[in-house]
Design a binder for these strands. Structure first.
Lengths: 240, 240
DNA sequence: TGAAAGCTTCGGCGGTGGCCGAAGTGTGGG
DNA sequence: CCCACACTTCGGCCACCGCCGAAGCTTTCA
């Protein structure tokens, strides 16, 4: 096999270009922040990362041009968000690959507090993660609504459960109904995909849980504890 | 929310470091080449990429240190391969994200020939891809052995089919039995995971298909056509 | 209509990193 | 025993890229 500059290289060049977008610490920080699924302004990201607005502007330009971010210009603000669920999954997968190496050890008490809140429950782009996400996934599996032993898919009973519970599953494009997302803190898969997003959306609108501060962490409410116990048999203690 | 250099940054730094490994065109080329699932020597990779052996050595050092590659020293040779199925999946996912942009248009006749052989059938790390991979996946789905509508998982009948056909499914660690891998050329998911690997392994050892040249492309044999037709009802024409 | 806020563009600086060739190390073959 | 071969280490070159501050543009608010 000879050098083959043109053929194989085009793929390699594209792959390298994509990875380059993530290969900068500041941009990586942006992507992780945006994993909360919401739109941030350029200024918020700049302050979050601790770099100058001009620097942020250049970074965002690259990320948008590379198709990783979508932008919304509103007045003097530039809102950016992850382009789609696919990009979110990519960032999650990369982050999951990293975390084993960077054994997360909180350095300060403040981080320990924030860390354990994140470990209890958080959003992962558009679905639930942390102990909350795992608890829900395990409960669904235990009730025979989700199969994890032969892959990762809802059962027919599972689809029925979503309907009966009043959580509509709207199939869009090619996005899978159920997908496994490797949990950062728990090191186990939790429910993502359309069903994961629908469940998370319902949990937030039905006040099962609320966001804490401006981060990705969420807290289960009294209402939520009752609903999760009644619908899925989840013990309240598991969530604390 | 203030800058938070230490907390959020540790994650971002690790993410950036991982992406940096892929962010170089030469290293990306190595990873794509190694997607054939076999071990290459440093010299082979150097010639493949068209760079000096010394440059290759440095690149391999980084990739091994970063945990993306595993190495086997044998005499004066240094064999490297993708570290595990997880790394392979990561590279696949990244590559799949790229291909839409780089609308693959073969430039020369030679590439067109090689490209269509790859499009017909190839290995994707340790499982089958291309039209062959899609055909198998579709056949399994059509026979009710695989579910794709509610996620991606074998059915109980599917597990039975593997047993009856004499393709053992050996569960190892946390690797899923069935997993979707987005096909490069077909833009649709094909079967990966333990079942995908077992099927590919069986296909190669039972002489259902053979590797073409030193690339990832494979060709279905006469024996293979009969077996695929008998066991899964796949029309031979589909594979050409 | 002025002033402030959010973002962008530009020029310049400095660090990082990929590349090579030359020299060095260790293995295998004649 | 010596040579050929595969790989590694080292030094130096060069290009790229992230960073900032200054200046400019547009929007918003008083």
């Amino acid at each position: 096999m000879t050098s083959s500059r043109s053929g194989a290289r085009t793929g390699a060049a594209g792959l390298a270009a994509l990875a380059s977008l993530v290969a900068d610490e500041t941009r990586a920080g942006f992507l992780l922040a945006l994993l909360d699924g919401r739109a941030w302004t350029a200024g918020e990201l700049a302050r979050h990362a601790g770099v100058a607005p001009s620097t942020t502007s250049e970074h965002l330009g690259k990320l948008v041009a590379g198709g990783l971010l979508a932008e919304d210009r509103q007045g003097r603000h530039r809102y950016v968000r992850l382009a789609d669920a696919r990009v979110a999954q990519l960032v999650e997968d990369l982050a999951a690959q990293v975390s084993p190496a960077a054994t997360m050890k909180p350095r300060t008490l403040r981080e320990a507090g924030a860390g354990s809140a994140m470990a209890r429950g958080r959003t992962c782009y558009d679905h639930l993660a942390g102990r909350l996400g795992i608890a829900v996934t395990d409960a669904l599996t235990g009730l025979g609504l989700l199969r994890q032993d032969t892959g990762f898919a809802l059962t027919d009973e599972g689809v029925g459960w979503f309907e009966e519970t009043g959580i509509p599953l709207i199939r869009t494009g090619r996005r899978p109904l159920a997908r496994a997302c490797l949990d950062w803190t728990e090191r186990r898969p939790h429910l993502a995909g359309i069903a994961g997003a629908a469940l998370c959306h319902h949990a937030l609108t039905a006040n099962w849980c609320v966001r804490i501060g401006s981060e990705r962490a969420v807290k289960v409410t009294e209402t939520g504890e009752q609903a999760l116990s009644r619908l899925l048999g989840i013990q309240s203690e598991t969530l604390r």
